[in-house]
Amino acid sequence: MLLKDEVEMLRRITLFSGLPPAKLKLLAFTSDRVMYSAGEDLFHQGDIGDAAYVILSGKADVLVSTPTGQVKVAEVEQNSIVGEIAILCNTPRTATIKTITPLEALRIRKDDFLKLLADFPDMAVEIMRVLADRLSQTTSELTEARSRAQRVEA
């Protein structure tokens, strides 16, 4: 896959869709193309985050460890970005990403990513919007889970 194909892929991700093509090309150029076979970890929960990943092809599980073991909370596939939370707020990884098929991704290093955010405020706003979306989704899921728990107790 060539640089220009990667740019096409990036454009399809909501987070980057608003960026001018030249910047997307720069983002792709500064990132590494990486490949994983099935069953490999992109990163591990609790590690310090140093990069975000844009999945170009393949699928992976989002796993969270709990006292009872690892629980799958979501699945990610082509055209999604993972790992951006840890590099945004300097927290350890909140989940483990494990591939379920061979996977190809663009690895965006933390410093480059933050630099891009600083250079392009539009992108920062977009990130905020995506994160807020996710938060509201999580909140509604939590509410639902609580009410279900209450019903069980009752």
Partner: peptide, 19 residues
């Protein structure tokens, strides 16, 4: 052509130049 297109607008001390 590629390099000029990619890096033309960046300030000279931009960390991307390391790559």
């Amino acid at each position: 052509e590629n390099v000029v297109e990619l890096f033309r607008d960046l300030p000279p001390d931009h960390p991307f130049f390391q790559q």
